[in-house]
């Protein structure tokens, strides 16, 4: 962590709100992207972003200024996303019913052609992963975190992270094998 972070956290602990703004500018994208990749909802990601930094402000005294801030923020983001996910699981049937009544997806209607896209198939497959596996996939692939770093964030053994990632990849590979995700389609990603 840079010394700038340490100094900023110390200022935040002293009650300086500008320090909160500076940390927000520095880390907003990693928090927002992580929340967005997990929840798939920009409004929810915005709320999680705000709540994560409000918690940083509220619990600033307990944040260790000498340690990197990013893992702390990741952990809070994952916890908030999990809370949303748990509530969402119960509300999902109602949402599906309302969506049937109101027509296509309200937030992000996409053309039917894009639904057939290989990316869409991959995204649907990622969405279908259990929450714990999806979190590991997002942290590893989107945020470029190592298994060790993910284990520290999730406060679990590295072996657990490795196993979640393994099962997630196996599930994705099986789901996409021989269907929308043929090797020819996949080849474009290697360029």
């Amino acid at each position: 962590m840079s010394t700038a972070d340490t100094a900023t956290i110390l200022r935040l602990q002293a009650g300086n709100l500008e320090a909160l703004g500076e940390l927000y500018d520095r880390y907003r994208l990693i928090v927002y992207h992580t929340a967005l990749a997990i929840t798939r909802d920009p409004d929810v990601a915005d709320d999680i972003l705000q709540e994560a930094f409000l918690r940083l402000h509220t619990y600033a005294a307990s944040v260790k200024s000498e340690l990197p801030l990013a893992p702390w923020l990741y952990r809070v983001t994952i916890n908030l996303s999990y809370t949303w996910f748990s509530r969402r699981r119960w509300l999902a049937p109602l949402d599906e019913f309302l969506e049937k009544l109101t027509g296509p997806a309200r937030h992000h209607p996409e053309p039917a052609a894009e639904q057939r896209d290989a990316h869409e198939a991959m995204q649907r497959a990622i969405d279908a992963l259990p929450f714990n596996q999806r979190v590991v996939v997002v942290l590893h692939y989107l945020n470029d975190l190592s298994l060790q770093e993910i284990a520290e964030i999730l406060k679990c053994p590295v072996g657990t992270v490795k196993s979640r990632l393994y099962y997630a990849r196996e599930t994705l590979r099986q789901k996409l094998e021989g269907s929308a995700f043929s090797p020819e389609v996949a080849y474009e990603f290697t360029r």
Binding site: L36, A37, R40, A118, H119, M122, Q123, I126, V137, V138, Y141, L142, R169, L172, R173, L176, F181, P183, A186, Y187, F189, T190
Partner: peptide, 13 residues
């Protein structure tokens, strides 16, 4: 290829 595809899909989303 799968690794590339997962990363690409997440970034795209």
């Amino acid at each position: 290829l799968l690794d590339h595809a997962i990363r690409h899909s997440l970034l795209r989303r």
